[in-house]
Design a protein around this nucleic acid. Structure first.
Ligand SMILES: NC(=O)c1ccc[n+]([C@@H]2O[C@H](COP(=O)([O-])OP(=O)(O)OC[C@H]3O[C@@H](n4cnc5c(N)ncnc54)[C@H](O)[C@@H]3O)[C@@H](O)[C@H]2O)c1
Ligand SMILES: NC(=O)c1ccc[n+]([C@@H]2O[C@H](COP(=O)([O-])OP(=O)(O)OC[C@H]3O[C@@H](n4cnc5c(N)ncnc54)[C@H](O)[C@@H]3O)[C@@H](O)[C@H]2O)c1
Lengths: 218, 218
DNA sequence: TTTAGATTGTGAATGATGTAACATTTCCGT
DNA sequence: ACGGAAATGTTACATCATTCACAATCTAAA
């Protein structure tokens, strides 16, 4: 769609939602302007990196002044497609799935969990956090118009479900399962492996200098 | 402690727990040997990257043969300090916190959630997933021997709790809060921002070529 | 209107990560 | 015991990301 955007580094793209949220905060607080230095302290990203990130979108600020909060906000809203909602399905209403359903991702967000699926009869027909739960056997019937799936099923079920999601034409999967699923190259998968995150943190603590470190981020 | 380890790239360190888990699987399946190519297909990491990662630890494999699963396993167990358990506290027994407590991170893991804290009187004294819940006012009394904290409190409470954790001599924090907390450089914080992850996935879907892409990983 | 001070946007330096390619070594069947 | 097949470990390169440092530009106050 946007010609320019194809050139934005992935690392930058991953920071955009973060910037958006903090700019939103500033706006609610009635702040009129902000410098890259201030933002830097809030989001814990080097100020030069922030300026560089913003610069991919052209000159958003004014030299000697900083950035106009209102303008930044409207810019990010547009860029992150806040207006156009992405429909999401959640598969596996267990511990983690229930937490996600109860959490309203819609705050500050352009995504909405529209429907959930589970294999256990107990929960079918209920709603959790306002989201209706259907039986997994009915996946194909209800998945229409959904482009992203959150996978919170047991690891053994992950690949099978993924295959069905692919057939049902899903575009992206957020996989919380420890299983690394295989999908065609037309589908994007992000793995979030919480056990690995915890273990990695512990590894860093044990093996990296504890003191003269940056205070943040992997 | 280990002199060598200081040189291991962070990207590699983050993959180690992943390798460990899959090698563990292979071992349970009775597999005796594995090549970087096989491993690559399982964990979705380029085989050259795997060989490079392993090579930081010396020559773990044999040319023309591959890697001995048993040996790899014992090596990783040692390297990831599987034997020595790291004690973890969880702060904020809400939706997300409850999911984590019910989930047994101890599988394949050198970490154990020993204790949880919450501000709401309702849950104090209960146990969730075998973990006792104490009142947050008693944080300082019970945090002895705990080196890592998982933060799943509301965003507004995050910085305050973080300050107390720092005073109580915590070494690492896994922060699920959208707030970016400030801590001294002696404390390591990893942010896991689930809303950002979802939004970033959506952004990639909308703005990046959908087809000729690697099929995995950010 | 002038000037001191602030802050951007970016070229260039540095650092980190990923991967192609291959010489080298080991395995293993004959 | 030998030779081809297999797979490592690593060199060299390519790519991506971060950060420094500063000229250019703007603000705001006197
Ligand atoms: N809970 C955590 O803290 C945590 C942490 C790290 C990783 N994970 C991973 O996240 C996933 C979910 O964890 P959880 O704790 O919520 O597990 P859970 O067992 O509580 O939930 C799994 C849910 O999936 C449903 N299910 C099973 N098979 C299904 C199928 N074929 N189709 C649809 N639904 C199916 C079950 O009925 C259950 O409700 C697991 O893969 C787990 O390894 C969880
Ligand atoms: N649930 C999700 O899916 C999800 C997704 C993304 C981010 N998050 C973030 O994770 C955090 C927790 O989310 P949640 O859905 O579990 O919220 P929640 O409201 O269900 O749970 C928060 C818990 O923290 C407790 N608490 C409040 N103040 C406290 C204090 N000062 N000390 C100790 N405990 C305190 C509350 O009693 C409650 O039990 C939030 O910051 C949220 O933004 C959650």
């Amino acid at each position: 769609m946007d010609i320019e955007n194809a050139k934005i580094p992935q690392a930058t793209a991953k920071r955009l939602p973060l910037y958006y949220r903090f700019i939103n905060n500033l706006h609610s607080q009635g702040k009129m302007r902000v410098s890259s230095k201030e933002l830097s302290e809030a989001v814990k990203v080097d100020s030069a990196t922030i300026r560089r990130d913003f610069s991919y979108f052209g000159a958003l600020g004014k030299k000697g002044y900083g950035y106009n909060v209102e303008y930044l906000l409207s810019f990010f809203r547009k860029t992150l497609d806040q207006d156009e909602t992405t429909n999401v399905a959640l598969i596996g209403v267990g511990n983690l799935g229930t937490a996600f359903l109860n959490y309203n991702f819609t705050k500050n967000n352009n995504t909405k969990i529209q429907i959930a699926f589970d294999a256990s009869d107990d929960r079918i027909g209920d709603t959790v956090g306002g989201v209706p739960i259907k039986h997994i056997d009915e996946l194909e019937e209800y998945i229409d118009g959904i482009s992203v799936a959150i996978l919170t099923v047991p690891a053994q079920a992950a690949q099978g479900i993924a295959d069905r999601l692919v057939k049902a034409n899903i575009s992206g999967v957020l996989n919380f399962t420890p299983a690394r699923i295989t999908v065609p190259s037309s589908v994007r998968v992000h793995h979030i492996d919480l056990a690995v995150e915890l273990q990695a943190l512990v590894y860093f603590l044990k093996h990296y200098p504890l003191d003269g470190e940056l205070e943040d981020e992997l």
